[in-house]
Design a protein around this nucleic acid. Structure first.
Length: 938
DNA sequence: TGCTTCACG
DNA sequence: GACGTACGTGAAGCAC
């Protein structure tokens, strides 16, 4: 050690908040807000450049649970959650300390301030000096005797003089003053009625807090005197709270804090990834060429490690595990079954100390709105997990031990779920949030939440499924115990509640363990795969929004659905005899095979096609062709089929799934589609009929309750607008700027005819071309759509590309991108993998090429409406439109329910938020409708 | 369980 | 020369 060590201690946690509010907003290339990170980076760079100090460390708060919250639970208990733009910066600042090769120190149970105090005292004891980089008033008690502070933003020193100016007392008496005045932001009580002036006056007069309290009875009668006597205990408690601990065991010995040079390559790489070029040049590191070289070297090492001569990204998972070895090697075993309040309390405390834990619930069903929670599991570290059964029953084995009461267990779990300083990781969080909600814990109170399914989906949609077992096999090289092996299958299956708790534990606790390990492996890859912003700003916040929507449900008119069902049924019945007569015999009309045999074998009609199983195709296009030839049977079957479809899929199914309150609650799947769209199931409310008159009657049965209204808000031509934007096509952009009929304009451009008085047929052709473009056009497909020969369709396409060469260029560019990377990207950074892009079979390869062309447009549109959905609830609330509920999303449409009086205001606000959800080169346009039912609102 | 069909964007 | 195609979903019924 040097003779006179000079230790520089950076108050990392304090700096984050200070810099966030002091510095203008800025984002990194991925769109993640980084203003505090930038400030922090600059500060570290300056310290290293100027060689300030011989030793350096950055201190962080580890968890909210500290000795202070133990002696006084309200301490810092009602701190608001950090702003959304700040949250992603916490972990980035830890990354920054690592990149700079500076020790970042935190210790569970202690605040950064206590660590700073203890290190300061330690270095002073050995004759050294200390500079604390912070402006936090709570640290000012340490100033003096070789310890000084430096305001990290203003760069002004804070010495004994500054402290005395602020508190009116010298540094060593600061705690007494703070104890008297209290601190509302930290919930330090102090003595009511005593502020900074009175407090410092009292301390200056009596010397210490104890002296003040002891002298109080002798003071002349006043409010102040009474308060001092009455709240003496609170003042003593406050003194404990504000006094920093100076005897914390030092997690890293002082000598290991000796200032060391950063690894230039690592640092340059990180600065480059954050877009902090200016910091690099300021540190004299020159251009980021080194960083690129470094990255390239790492990438090729990676490829050769995979044993691939020509790395094919399409076949390489984006997130090769990079976690510590124990993440993969710790056994998946020895899980604890928690049966007592004491044991559960211990696990909750461990989770709080860890700061991150995984949670999983077990239920008696797959519908989270209806299921009962049978138990839950917690994981606090790899291999360290427990299961808490609360509603297991039945067999003798299951009753080998006691189990906690569900309510009691949840009340013990609640503080953890609501602890803003502990991250709760779930696999498919929306499901567990709704299960917990149903069990009595408001899902919106559970925060912060991460979801391994969405972390993975945000960077690997289309590459593989996002189920836990699949992710585990992929990233942890581990196959978890299957549900079926625990419950049995088929007629031997037993309810999970009847599974003996020890056996249930091996399954349930492992799920939490796997989830936590997956989080450790996958979360860091968000940044390297440039998906952090998408995850943080879109997918992650959307979980709570969708959970609320599913809970809301939509009201249906049961009587009307029942009437429709009966109506459809009687009409089908009436048609049957006519169909049998036309067919020449009775048969199952719902059987395509039997129908095909009758039409093409028995009746000998021409124009039959066979499907891949060899059976005659009887889909509507085939039947329509036959009908156009003048045949009677196909017409009747088409009509019968429409009614059968509407009855079985809609009227009957909806009635079955309608709650007692006459509402239907769909489930939105967030990680199914290859493009980023949502899907809806049980029931699917994204495919409710609209195109036919019969279908409209079903949509009319989706209603607003009395005094309420439905509002439909849908994006107009959002995918074509995205095309105009990403391909940057001047003519398309102009058409949207001018608010023209886009299909008519296309017709005018492609067929070279005036826009005014465009005939319907030509416009219809242009419309089909526009859709075809979005789908990655083919002559066959367009021809089929328009009912014209492929050759004629090809001439349309040629004409289109001749007029819009930029779109052809764009399509070629996207296909090349897919071939190079194995994926394409939406404008918002969502990766859509296209695994078939290198297929040998031309048919399959071209299919993949069309997917590649379509995905950025369909996926970009999905990103935009998701961004709007995340912003809408807060925006509506802020506008005082508190009666509005978001109910459904149908890809480019949002459906709201609202009090009649607020309907027009909500429609206006929703339109504004949706149109502002993205800044494209063309305007986004949203159309709204207000009515008592969905058909008329749409 | 796979196939076919058809509802939606 | 034959193949088999517009993009993305979910649900129902048939046939096995």
């Amino acid at each position: 050690m040097t003779n006179t060590p000079h230790l520089v201690l950076v108050d990392g946690s304090g700096f984050i908040f200070r810099a966030f509010h002091a510095l203008p907003p800025m984002t990194n290339p991925e769109g993640v807000p980084v203003n505090a990170v930038y400030g922090f980076t600059n500060m570290l760079a300056r310290l290293l450049r100027d060689h300030v100090g011989t030793h350096l460390a950055v201190l962080f708060d580890a968890s909210r649970q500290t000795f202070r919250s133990e002696i006084y639970p309200q301490y810092k208990a009602h701190r608001p959650e950090p702003p959304e733009d700040l949250r992603p910066q916490f972990s980035l600042i830890r990354d920054a300390t690592q990149a700079f090769n500076v020790p970042g120190i935190e210790l569970p149970g202690w605040e950064a301030d206590d660590l700073i105090a203890s290190y300061a005292v330690a270095v002073r004891k050995m004759g050294g000096t200390c500079t604390i980089i912070s402006s936090d008033k709570d640290l000012m008690q340490l100033v003096g005797q070789g310890v000084c502070m430096l305001d990290p933003i203003k760069q002004t020193p804070i010495g004994p003089v500054e402290v005395e100016t602020k508190f009116g007392v010298p540094p060593e008496k600061v705690v007494d003053v703070q104890a008297l005045m209290g601190d509302p932001t930290d919930n330090v009580p102090g003595v009511p009625g005593i502020g900074p002036k009175t407090a410092s006056a009292l301390i200056n007069e009596f010397g210490t807090l104890e002296n003040v309290l002891a002298s109080a009875p002798d003071m002349k009668k006043s409010k102040k005197r009474d308060m001092l006597i009455e709240h003496a205990q609170a003042a003593r408690l406050s003194l404990q709270l504000v006094t920093l601990a100076t005897d914390v065991p030092l997690p890293v010995p002082l000598e290991e804090l000796a200032t060391r040079e950063p690894d230039t390559l690592v640092l340059a790489d990180w600065l480059d990834s954050m877009g902090f070029r200016s910091v690099m040049s300021r540190m004299g590191m020159g251009s980021p060429a080194g960083a690129h070289a470094h990255r390239a070297a790492r990438a090729s090492a990676h490829a050769s490690a995979n044993g691939q001569d020509t790395p094919n990204p399409a076949q390489t998972a984006p997130a090769q595990s990079t976690g510590p070895a124990d993440l993969l090697s710790t056994p998946y075993a020895e899980y604890e079954t928690v049966r007592t309040a004491e044991a559960l309390q211990k696990w909750v405390s461990m989770a709080q100390e860890a700061g991150v834990c995984a949670v999983d619930t077990e239920t008696d069903g797959l519908d989270p709105l209806a299921a009962s929670m049978l138990g839950f599991s917690l994981a606090t570290a790899p291999g360290k997990a427990c299961y808490v059964p609360v509603r297991h029953e039945g067999t003798l084995e299951a009753l080998t031990g006691e189990q906690l009461d569900a309510t009691q267990a949840l009340n013990l779990l609640r503080p953890l779920l609501e602890d803003r300083s502990v991250l709760k990781v779930f696999q498919n969080a929306k499901f567990d949030l709704l299960v917990l909600d149903h069990a009595g814990i408001d899902h919106t109170s559970i925060a912060p939440v991460d979801d391994t399914m969405l972390i993975s989906y945000s960077q690997s949609a289309g590459l593989h499924g996002q189920g836990m077992d699949e992710l585990s096999a992929l990233h942890l090289n581990h196959t978890p115990i299957t549900y079926d092996s625990v419950t049995g299958t088929g007629r031997n299956r037993i309810p999970f509640a009847m599974v003996p708790v020890e056996k249930a534990t091996t399954y349930a606790a492992e799920d939490a363990d796997v989830t936590l390990r997956l989080w450790h492996v996958l979360h860091p890859t968000l940044r390297t795969n440039k998906a952090l912003a998408l995850y943080e700003q879109v997918e992650r916040p959307l979980v709570q929004v969708l959970a609320t929507m599913e809970k809301n449900g939509i009201a249906v008119d049961r009587a009307e659905l029942t009437r429709l069902s009966a109506d459809f049924e009687s009409r089908m019945k009436n048609m049957e005899q006519g169909i049998y007569a036309a067919a020449g015999r009775e048969f199952n009309i719902a059987s395509p095979r039997q129908l095909g045999e009758i039409l093409f074998d028995e009746m000998g009609l021409k124009g039959g096609k066979r499907g891949k199983a060899g059976a005659w195709s009887t889909d509507s296009s085939v039947l329509q062709d036959l009908a156009d030839q003048g045949h009677d049977l196909p017409v009747r079957v088409l009509e019968w089929r429409q009614l059968a479809k509407l009855k079985s899929t809609y009227t009957d199914a909806l009635l079955k799934l309608t709650s007692k309150e006459s509402r239907v609650h769909t489930s939105f799947q967030m990680a199914i589609t290859t493009t980023g769209r949502l899907s809806s199931s049980d029931p699917n409310l994204q495919n409710i009929p609209v195109r036919t008159e019969e279908g409209t009657r079903i949509r009319q049965a989706f209603v607003a309750p009395a005094g309420r209204r439905l509002i439909s808000a849908d994006y107009s031509q959002i995918e074509l607008r995205l095309l105009a934007d990403v391909a940057n096509i001047p003519t398309l952009r102009e058409a949207f700027e001018l608010g023209q009929d886009i299909h008519a304009r296309t017709a005018s451009e492609v067929f070279n005819i005036p826009l005014e008085g465009m005939d319907a047929l030509t416009r219809r052709r242009a419309k089909a071309i526009n859709f075809g473009i979005i789908y990655g056009i083919s002559a066959f497909g367009l021809g089929k759509q328009l009912g014209i020969p492929a050759g004629e369709a090809k001439s349309y396409i040629d004409a289109y590309f001749a007029r819009y060469p930029g779109i052809r260029d764009y399509m070629e560019q996207i296909k090349a991108e897919a071939r190079t990377n194995g994926y394409v990207m939406t404008p918002f950074g969502r990766r859509c993998y296209v695994p078939g892009i290198h297929e040998k079979s031309a048919v399959r390869r071209q299919y993949a090429e069309r997917q590649a062309i379509n995905a950025p447009l369909q996926g970009g549109a999905a990103d935009i409406i998701k961004r709007a959905m995340v912003r809408l609830p807060e925006a509506l609330k802020a506008a005082g439109l508190d009666s509005a509920r978001m109910l459904l999303q149908v890809h480019d449409e949002l459906l709201f329910e609202v009090d009649a009086e607020q309907a027009s205001a909500v429609a206006e606000k929703a339109k504004a938020i949706m149109e502002a959800a993205a800044q494209l080169k063309v305007p986004l346009v949203v159309e709204t409708g207000i009515a008592q039912n969905w058909a008329e609102a749409h």
